[in-house]
Design a protein around this nucleic acid. Structure first.
Lengths: 337, 337
DNA sequence: GTGAAAGCGCTAACAT
DNA sequence: ATGTTAGCGCTTTCAC
């Protein structure tokens, strides 16, 4: 059923039907009524494809992320969805499952589908050294379709982005530990070549330096971002002759893994060791002790990304970088030395 | 840039360009080459809107689910994505956040967008008594666009569905507990009017009946599906004069909540109380003790849903109901009485 | 092997 | 207030 069928059945022209559908010009109550009756009778729904083709706007957005299974992403997706809904966008969700090549594929696919904009999380924009061609590709893309990066960047920062200040968050965490009397602090997890990891370690070192302390190189343990990373590296730490009294983790997932491993080996958290996470995903309050962590304000992060993207789409002026201040959430996994 | 521009630049007709783009008819190597050159030079990408409008197929699917923040759903979404990708579908993700009204909105929206099919998880199809009009709406919808329901149904089962046999899974769990010597078993969580809850309780009772046991009414504790539900109801249980020695939880989330609460009150799991979850989300292995649970085989579930949907779309014959057998995963939260 | 042209369902400029 | 009509960018039939 098309707009023509409706027009015919109601004895009017397609233009008039279009007018009542879009409320785009005055139509007499009578004809309007006639048309509405037909629409309801046949449950007519217009074809968004045709509409978008003509209007050159799809009201659709692409979200590219590396792993929906990692609890951080559903949380920010939730914020994205909320804000998108308010602005009447529908979302394509593209999970690259950590493969950079797939990012490229999705980028092309989304352009073919004429999305009004995209938001890009994780993946290549988290690499401290982005391959030249990956960066260029994304930049070229961003010139053609409005794009915002979340918690990441590419060299030269040519693309709009919204970021949590992970350095500031880490500083808060370290200061908290210091205030509790800890100076033997280790850092667990995160791939060395990702900015999330680097920023945190940099901030960690900075605070130490300010306090005239130095961080022990053997206590900086790189790994991936998984639960098992936390377990593995905690185990390593616990085998050392000189053990830290507190450990900072790259995210809540690894923190939980670390806590589990410590518990399994008979250590009591936080009495024997203080542990601190990052992100504040629901998992952080699921375990005993509940994890002290740094909130990324995930919902706000998602909402902000869309609100910026929306402005970009309307060609409003927006500043290139929006920073979100994280917040230390003190719970049960940290204690006085 | 359109196909016309390409045609013009290459000195051929649009038909020919279309032919090489779609490989839909033989084109001489020479002209093909000319066209490819132009395409690469200008980075031409075709407009999927126009294409879909003409072909009456969009290669898009709508996924409607109640809460992407609940770890069960990202897991099945992952399976969905995997299978969708293999069949070249792109996904609209619609999170209703538990609001039935929003399901309706998304249903309409997806039809306007001409999706080739939808998969529907949770929400109204999980209600043991679906409101008449909600059921009808969905049924009418399913007649017009291929639809598959995951872990749910509506009266009369007119729509294709794929379900995990939650009853069978629960039976395995109860038998496991029985085998460990437990007969004082409680059940925690789940809204009373949802099928996920009902099916489990029914199976629970059935196994008890078979063994000549009866379940204590005061040990069946309804609540929602959250972590806090687990905490709340475990607390209640622990305040009773006669306490169960084992508890069955409606999902892993509540199981973890229950474990946390028990631990907080000084009970040792599984020594004092055995606890068993359902779903087998990653959370289940994140805590100490790792939780014994029933795997829903989430990835398989997602993949199956799409593979059925795909067949439906191609108008292949598919059986109305596909059942997936769950599997008991014995870990650390259950022990001999 | 290639081209001309109709048409997918809609919007919007122009006419009445 | 309403109708006519020209596209939007593509696929596909029908000619040649």
């Amino acid at each position: 059923m098309t707009i023509y069928d409706v027009a015919h059945e109601a004895g009017v022209s397609v233009a008039t039907v279009s007018r009542v559908l879009n409320n785009t010009a005055p139509v007499s109550p009578k004809t309007k009524q006639k048309i509405m009756t037909v629409i309801e009778k046949y449950q007519f729904q217009r074809n968004a494809l045709a509409r978008s083709l003509k209007k050159k706007e799809t009201r659709t957005l692409g979200i590219i992320l590396p792993d929906i299974t990692n609890p951080f992403f559903p949380e920010v997706f939730s914020g994205i969805e909320l804000e998108a809904r308010e602005n009447d966008y529908t979302l394509f969700l593209c999970d690259t499952m950590g493969e950079y090549e797939r990012e490229t594929q999705y980028l092309y696919m989304l352009r073919e589908r004429q999305v009004d904009g995209i938001v890009f999380l994780g993946g290549r924009i988290n690499l401290s050294k982005v391959e030249q061609n990956l960066a260029e590709e994304l930049q070229t893309f961003a010139q053609r379709v409005p794009t915002v990066l979340v918690n990441g960047s590419i060299p030269g920062n040519p693309i709009h982005r919204v970021c949590v200040d992970e350095g500031a968050g880490t500083e808060q965490a370290v200061r908290h530990l210091l205030a509790l009397g800890h100076t033997d602090i280790a850092f667990i997890g995160g791939l060395e070549y990702m900015t999330t990891t680097m920023q945190k370690i940099r901030a960690f070192k900075k605070v130490f330096r300010e306090h005239g302390l130095t961080v022990r190189k053997e206590w900086i343990l790189y790994d991936d971002f998984s639960l098992n990373a936390g377990k593995r590296q905690m185990k390593k730490l616990l085998h050392m002759s000189h053990k830290p009294t507190a450990v900072l983790c790259v995210n809540d997932y690894t923190a939980v893994g670390a806590i589990q491993e410590a518990g399994r080996r008979g250590y009591s958290i936080p009495n024997d060791i203080s542990i601190i996470g990052f992100d504040d995903v629901p998992l952080a309050t699921a375990i005993l002790p509940e994890v002290t962590t740094v909130s990324q304000k995930t919902e706000l992060l998602g909402r902000t990304a869309i609100s910026i993207l929306h402005k970009l789409i309307q060609k409003e002026k927006v500043k290139k970088l929006t920073v979100i201040e994280p917040e230390l959430i003190i719970r049960e996994s940290t204690a006085q030395l």
